[in-house]
Design a binder for these strands. Sequence first.
RNA 1: GGAGGAUUAGCGAAGUGGUCAUAACGCGGCGGUCUUGAAAACCGUUUGACGGCAACGUCACGGGGGUUCGAAUCCCUCAUCCUCCGCCA
Length: 427
Amino acid sequence: MLDVKLIRDNPEDIKRRLNDRLINCDEQIDRIMVLDALRRELIQKTETAKSEQNKVSKEIPQMKKQGLDTAPIFEKMNVLKEQIKASEQQLREVEDEYSELLLSLPNLPDGDLKPGGKENNTPLSFFESKFQPEGEKNHFDLCSDLGIIDYERGAKLAGSGFWIYRGLGARLEWALLNFFIENHSADGYEFMMVPHMLNYECGLAAGQFPKFKDDVYWLDEGEENRHFMLPTAETALAGLHRDEILTEASLPRKYVAYSPCFRREAGSYRSEERGTLRGHQFNKVEMFQVTAPEKSMEAFEELVVRAENLVRALGLKFRTVKLAAGDCSASMARTYDIEVYIPSIKDYKEVSSVSNARDYQARRGNIRFRREDGKIEFCHTLNGSGLATSRVLPAIVEQYQLSDGSIMVPEVLRRFLNGRERISKDD
RNA sequence: GGAGGAUUAGCGAAGUGGUCAUAACGCGGCGGUCUUGAAAACCGUUUGACGGCAACGUCACGGGGGUUCGAAUCCCUCAUCCUCCGCCA
């Protein structure tokens, strides 16, 4: 959520900066300006009447004590009561529309981002693979032939977009997750195992709701207090310190969580995204930080390097891309993607998305901290995948394939697989 | 799933329709007096949000709604926690 003061002070500047995202919010901002003024006027009106009501109300017990006639004063109070009721009703209507509009505005992109969409993304760095692949098979065929992923029976159990990791495939997947968690934990990130079903407020704080509430799976539990399956552990971690005031000394808070991620992905199927490249459920290790505002860029750089180092340690070819304003997700002020190379489609696929939300999520979730001098401010929140496995595994099998259709196990993962160096058909 | 009970400041807790909600009282925290230093004792202090240039005002007793001239207090509803019963990996 944006600070309404920013809009109030310079609505044209905010419009221009949001336009960089290729989203036109001009009308919404104009309307917010109108409602903001109206809102403040109504607040004053209501509070003046309430002040009067409180004053008179205090006189009543004294009058009764003295045996005075209270009838005329009740008369007056009834009038006040009606006035307050009416202006409160008006205020409620104005505030409903006002906060809905304010919540629907995306975050301001950082000033150094290129305006526009995907086409304006800027690759920042490239890393070449450690291993020279000996074949050109695609990951779908390799995984099927090796028997490490069962796509057919996955669809049988749950439909298209689901798969089963089997045997050494499951072990490899588990090894990746372990490798990531161990890495972050060693550097002071607190490992969190969070609920996989969350309430609405989590989605609101993270910035996914109300706009993207149809992109997640909702459980059928009746009208109120329903749960949705989390689309990323970020949604849980963004809700962790909701309505809390943290001490400055306890910042930055560094968390790492593993969770499966559930996404509807309605209409986003593309034929090149076969196998595990896009599914309704995938595994991800997520990093999350809560920082003081002046420390969030430092934390951002840290998260980018952490994610890069994991891909580098696996020896995979990848690149890091700075996203243009329009390609960053709505809650984020800046995002860098780490993309791993998938030889069969001659393209890079995102395995990590590192973002700085600045105070956008903190405002929505009311996540604050107290400075040493006692002042209370909103925190900054950041998140980054570290990493999502559903694209790492295809990259591994393709980039580490041998001429006979077996694959090499990246060195850093071997100790999670009893020292195993390769996976072949006979296993 | 059923039956009870609870939710008030950092913590414990008083308050059962009005003039004690910046909330009694206790603990803790912070500042001070005393002390070589500490402890003890004593004194003081200690919520947040919103509106306003300010003076000041408004709101918040788990959340939301209602009754009333007036609600922490009465009613409805939801959430969470506790106790007992049932069921269960």
